Simulated assay, not measured.
Amino acid sequence: MKLGIVIYTPEAETAWNALRLGIFALKQGDSVRLFLLARGVECEKLDTERFAVSTQMREFLGLGGDILACGTCLKLRHSEGSELCPVSTMKDLYEIVRDSDRVVTF
């Protein structure tokens, strides 16, 4: 299955759970692409004592997942892309939605 995940939340627990789903799907042999939108582009900075979001992001990438971050949303936050949040476009989000068998949002 091709799974698309869109994270737009600034809440650590929700983002952490979205990444857990993506990691699980990758371990099942599925293809997973993740798009960070709106405040979701802040994901790598959401780490708390209980929810290591950036660690989950690294594991997701290590398993072959793909993470993209909205360039406009990053600019609005005076931020640049990074290894965990590479700059992308609405075209990339469109392609994730178009090409995925299922898309879930968090």
Rank of each mutant, 00 (worst) to 15 (best):
R33K: 13
D30I: 05
R20W: 08
V32Y: 10
A15K: 11
R20K: 06
R39W: 13
G4N: 11
I7G: 07
F24Q: 09
V6M: 01
Q28G: 14
Y8P: 00
E11Q: 08
L37I: 10
P10G: 15
T9S: 14
Q28W: 01
R39H: 15
V41W: 05
E13I: 09
T14N: 09
K27S: 13
V32T: 13
V41G: 04
I5C: 06
L37M: 09
P10W: 04
F24I: 05
L34H: 07
L36I: 08
D47Y: 04
A12Q: 02
R20I: 07
W16Y: 15
R33N: 12
A38Q: 04
S31L: 02
P10D: 15
I7Y: 00
A18W: 00
L21Y: 09
A15I: 04
L34Y: 09
L26T: 02
G29D: 01
L37W: 14
F35E: 04
D47H: 06
V6A: 03
S31C: 01
Y8C: 07
P10C: 14
P10N: 15
V32N: 11
T9Y: 05
A12I: 10
C43P: 07
L37Q: 11
I5M: 04
V41C: 07
R39V: 11
D30F: 02
I5F: 11
V6K: 00
W16C: 08
W16I: 06
D30L: 08
L46A: 05
N17A: 11
D47Q: 03
G29S: 02
T14K: 08
G29I: 00
T9E: 02
L3Q: 04
Q28H: 08
T14Y: 11
E42L: 15
G40E: 02
K45I: 10
K27C: 05
I23Y: 05
A15C: 13
L3K: 05
A38N: 08
R33H: 15
T14Q: 10
I7K: 11
A15F: 10
A12Y: 05
K45L: 14
Y8M: 08
L19Y: 08
L46E: 07
L34S: 11
W16K: 01
P10H: 14
R20N: 12
V32C: 02
I7Q: 01
L19W: 13
W16M: 07
I7V: 12
L34M: 13
L34D: 06
F24L: 12
L34K: 00
A15G: 02
L36R: 10
R33I: 03
I7P: 11
W16H: 15
T14D: 03
I5Q: 01
F35A: 10
C43F: 11
V32E: 00
G4W: 04
A12N: 04
L3M: 06
E11Y: 14
S31W: 00
I5T: 05
A38I: 09
Q28E: 14
L36W: 01
L37H: 15
P10I: 14
L36G: 03
V6I: 15
I7E: 00
K27G: 01
K27M: 08
G4H: 00
G40D: 06
A18Y: 02
N17V: 03
V32M: 12
L36Y: 12
T14H: 07
